[in-house]
Nucleic acid binder design. Structure first.
Lengths: 247, 247
DNA sequence: ACATTAGATTGACTTAAATCAAGGCCCAAT
DNA sequence: ATTGGGCCTTGATTTAAGTCAATCTAATGT
């Protein structure tokens, strides 16, 4: 029910090679390396709810989200769930579980029907160990990830619920667009709430707050932002990163 | 007033080579590399309050805390300060600002009189680019840092103030020791508070709470823990990492 | 078309933490 | 010894967010 299809990569036009070379990490990588990944990888469609791997599973594959959304999460001792991240298309995951531990450090579950490519970690590990250039790329990739985490910690510390939500909305908009901006929430509001470290009731009220304060229009998962500048100043004033904060 | 002394490394018995080889990152590193760092590095004593670098400064040096404590922080647009981390002896910092940006991503200030070694980032960058083995070590180092950040995000999300404080105390105790355990808070309570993402008043009350609930004894910065097991179960039940969580 | 159900919202209330204000303690400089 | 200033604590109050419970809505399957 979860696995809708699976195919060898080479049988497919827009195979994982194409997919991979769109990721910064693999751009300009050695073609032989990409081909090897290609030949040993596969693409699968999964529907919402499918568990890709569990924390402490043996880490043999790393993945790339081609479409849809995937959540990474951890379980607390008393049974709660903590969202580590929710990943959009174009994200690689499972790749930092390369080393000694060799177990995934969190669980991964599809939260919006997704197309996901999988490749053996061993090939990645080998490339890192033998190709200096790629190894450097990987380092940069990790440093970038570190920066994201720092930002996340900051957000949770100094932004209140409406600001965190505003920040989330802004990050859904790639570049500064002309007003008004219409966007769709990419996954369940409940999940956005826990992604932002709040309860779903709080999320709901934060959204209502943005409606009142900024003239945001909401209908289901469709949101219209009247004024980007207003939202930016409302959201980013408490933050150490000026908008647009992804660089 | 801040710079109390500065010396070339080789003029010193317990020079930076010795200091470096105690860090996991540099253990078993190429002796020529360590010597080069050694010859181009220096050790300085700084007193509390000394600013080592500011966010957006050109990143030319990386540092190792030999003794004392250093805080990393960022400034928000409206002037507040966010603590990124507070670093104990044995920590390397400034080293992730290796790449393209070439600017420090945060500011660094001494918060308890410290002895700090400085080395040119260029030497590190060169070693990473040419020595596969070291590059791999650096990758592991970064992955480990990533895990720490994940843990931090989790703590801020699911632990309340007394639990975060309890967790902080536990992390000051390297191994599981016999009761009762006596320890000293390593830096100002105000700073511990912001390190833990709370106001100093909240910190004070959290400490009082641990006194009441766990029979903790506090006198100034000296703390006596009656029962480690009690503190562990009080603190770690809401967390996804079992004690001792550093591995 | 209808029942079922997961997801979302709303209201009432509780609780944790922030804020505001006052005062205490200890160390350092005079 | 006295003064002054960090640093810390404590009390009173406000505020943000969590919790609990009741609906409401929209999508799904029969």
């Amino acid at each position: 029910m979860n696995t809708l299809s699976s195919k060898k990569c080479q049988s497919h036009d827009e195979g994982p090679t194409a997919a991979l070379s769109e990721l910064v990490l693999f751009r300009d990588a050695d073609p032989a390396f990409l081909t090897k990944l290609n030949n040993n990888g596969n693409i699968q469609d999964f529907s919402k709810g499918h568990v890709i791997f569990l924390q402490d599973d043996l880490a043999e594959w790393f993945y790339v989200v081609l479409s849809g959304w995937v959540k990474l999460f951890r379980q607390t001792l008393d049974g709660d769930e903590v969202i580590v991240d929710v990943l959009p298309a174009g994200t690689i995951f499972g790749e930092t579980d390369l080393f000694d531990n060799k177990q995934y450090s969190c669980s991964a579950e599809v939260v919006q029907d997704a197309k996901i490519a999988a490749y053996p970690i061993s090939i990645l590990r080998n490339e890192i160990a033998t190709n200096q250039t790629f190894s450097l790329k990987m380092l940069k990739h990790l440093v970038q990830g570190q920066r994201e985490k720092d930002k996340e910690i900051e957000h949770r510390t100094i932004q209140n619920a409406p600001q965190r939500l505003g920040c989330f909305l802004l990050r859904l908009i790639p570049a500064k667009k002309a007003n008004p901006v219409v966007l769709h929430l990419p996954y369940d509001k409940t999940l956005i709430a826990s992604r932002l470290g709040m309860q779903s009731e709080t999320f709901s009220r934060a959204l209502a707050r943005l409606k009142d304060d900024l003239g945001l229009k909401v209908s289901g998962s469709t949101i219209e932002i009247k004024s980007m500048d207003e939202l930016i100043s409302y959201t980013c004033s408490a933050c150490s990163n000026a908008y647009p904060c992804e660089d």
